[in-house]
């Protein structure tokens, strides 16, 4: 069941920068870890891409305290970029992903500029992947993440450096919706050489344990994902797609095949499925099957 299984005679490949993906359905960074944990549950090799959990130069242990809280049709998380670090990722996780037929997209994050440069240096010239997603939008860390991604000038600086150091690879910039207007961020990323925009990361939210009069999360706020945020993500994609020339990857709350189609109609060139993998692991495959059958929906005018 590869991307070129042309049920209706239509191809579903998508090209972003220098990278050609066999279909436009990716796994979003975070929920599924490095994809390996889902190995026996779903065949991730059929997806156009698997965005691995964000890696930093050094391993991060992540946040203490509660990390998950359900909300109506949503999920708050405060994982805090727990990851194995770039060395273990490159020596263990990435080769294992490739060996299992996955098309890895390496998500990168940093605790500040020096950390970021060291990570880029380590990744430059490394084989095994041809696409990176810069996580400019994690709301659950103090340094880096959303703190950088809210400032168009910093977005420009981070994206430009990645383009310089990782020249030749497909550079995606994942943006935060936690700003007054996401379009300037997208324009900055595009101007700095990004090959595609990924919108959106989680929305800042919080919860309170009423019975115990206690905050749920140690860091007070957390990131909201799941079906509840789809309208927000869709509006972001709509606006960005009408402002930039490069492809937009839509992510946020996709919970059904129709949800994915909405993103294409809003102007996305590809979609990522995140939180839905928890409760409907087969959803990405159903989306691919539909696209192969009916083709990729054309974007709406307006």
């Amino acid at each position: 069941m590869g991307g070129m299984d042309l049920v209706s005679g239509r191809g579903v490949e998508v090209t972003i920068g220098s990278a050609v993906f066999k279909n436009p359905v990716f796994l979003a960074s975070g929920p599924a870890g490095y994809g390996l944990e889902y190995e026996t549950v779903i065949d991730l090799a059929v997806l156009g891409g698997v965005v691995a959990k964000t890696i930093t130069y050094k391993p991060l242990v992540g946040n203490r305290g509660a990390r998950l809280r359900e909300t109506p049709s949503g999920l708050l998380n405060s994982i805090g970029l727990e990851n194995v670090g770039c060395e273990a990722f490159l020596s263990e996780k990435l080769p294992a992903m490739v060996e299992r037929g996955m098309r890895p997209i390496v998500s990168i994050g940093a605790e500040g500029w020096e950390d970021y440069e060291r990570l880029l240096e380590r990744l430059s010239g490394t084989e095994g992947f041809d696409a990176v997603e810069i996580n400019l939008s994690c709301p659950n860390v103090d340094i880096g993440g959303m703190a950088v991604g809210r400032d168009p000038e910093l977005v420009e600086k981070y994206v430009r450096r990645a383009s310089e150091v990782l020249g030749g690879k497909c550079i995606l910039a994942k943006l935060t919706p936690n700003v007054e207007d996401i379009v300037p961020l997208a324009l900055s990323a595009e101007g700095a050489g990004a090959d595609g925009i990924v919108a959106v990361n989680t929305i800042v939210g919080m919860d309170i344990d009423v019975r115990n009069r206690k905050l749920v999360f140690d860091r007070v706020t957390a990131g909201l994902s799941g079906p509840a945020i789809l309208p927000v993500a869709l509006a972001a994609v709509w606006k960005i797609a009408r402002s930039v020339e490069i492809p937009v990857v839509g992510v946020g709350g996709i919970s059904s095949v129709d949800d994915a189609l909405k993103f294409f109609m809003a102007g996305a060139a590809a979609v990522e499925v995140g939180t839905a993998i928890f409760y409907d692991p087969e959803l990405p495959v159903r989306i691919i099957e539909r696209l192969e059958k009916d083709g990729i929906p054309e974007r709406l005018s307006g």
Binding site: G30, A32, G33, Y34, Y38, K53, G62, R64, L68, E82
Partner: peptide
């Protein structure tokens, strides 16, 4: 524990 993936992927259900 409250869990999301159940597989060790999401790192949500920690115990120290």
């Amino acid at each position: 524990a409250v869990m999301a993936c159940g597989l060790g992927a999401c790192r949500g259900c920690t115990v120290p």
